[in-house]
Computed example of a mutant assay.
Amino acid sequence: MKKWLALLFSAMLLTGCSTAKNDSSSKNAASSDKKQKSLQKVSVVLDWTPNTNHTGLYVAKEKGYFKQEGLDVNIVKPGETGADQLVASGKAEFGVGYQEGITQARIQGVPIVSIAAIIQHNTSGFASPVEKNIKSPKDFEGKTYGGWGSPVEKSVISSLMKKENADVKKVKFVNIGQTDFFTAVKKNIDFAWIYYGWTGIEAELRGEKLNMVYLTDYSKKLDYYTPVLTTSEQMISKKPEIVKAFVRAASKGYQFAIKHPNEAADILIKAEPDLDPKLVKKSQEWLASKYQADAPRWGEQKLEVWENYASWMYENGLLDKKLDAKKAFTNEFLPK
Rank of each mutant, 00 (worst) to 15 (best):
Q108E: 15
E153T: 10
S155I: 00
V156R: 06
T15L: 15
N22I: 13
S26G: 15
V73R: 06
I112Y: 06
T55D: 05
F94S: 07
K37Q: 14
D72V: 03
E153L: 01
V73L: 02
K21W: 13
G142T: 04
S38G: 05
V59M: 01
K63Y: 00
A88S: 15
S32K: 13
E100G: 10
G82R: 13
T103R: 08
G109Q: 05
Y145T: 02
W148D: 11
L57K: 06
I134C: 08
N22P: 04
I157R: 04
K91N: 14
Y58D: 01
L71S: 04
P78S: 08
P137W: 00
G109Y: 05
G16R: 11
P151W: 06
G109L: 08
I118D: 00
L86G: 06
W148T: 15
I157G: 09
W148Q: 14
S32F: 03
K61G: 00
S32W: 03
D84T: 10
D33P: 04
N22H: 09
L14D: 09
A20I: 08
T144Y: 02
V44E: 02
D47Y: 14
N133Q: 15
L39Y: 03
S25P: 04
G149I: 09
N122M: 09
N122F: 06
K67G: 00
S25R: 15
E69V: 00
A83H: 09
G147C: 03
A30M: 14
A92N: 06
K77F: 07
L86K: 11
N51E: 11
Q99G: 07
T55L: 08
I75G: 01
Q120K: 13
V44H: 01
K35Y: 05
S24I: 10
L57C: 01
Q36H: 06
N53T: 11
V96M: 10
K77E: 15
V42D: 02
N51K: 09
A127V: 02
T19H: 11
K135D: 08
E69S: 00
I107T: 12
S136C: 08
I118N: 01
T49A: 12
T144Q: 05
H121E: 13
N51F: 08
K37I: 07
K154Q: 13
Q120C: 07
S136E: 15
A105P: 03
A117Y: 01
V73K: 06
S124W: 13
T55M: 10
Q120G: 12
E131P: 06
L14T: 12
N122P: 05
A60Q: 02
Y58G: 05
V73F: 01
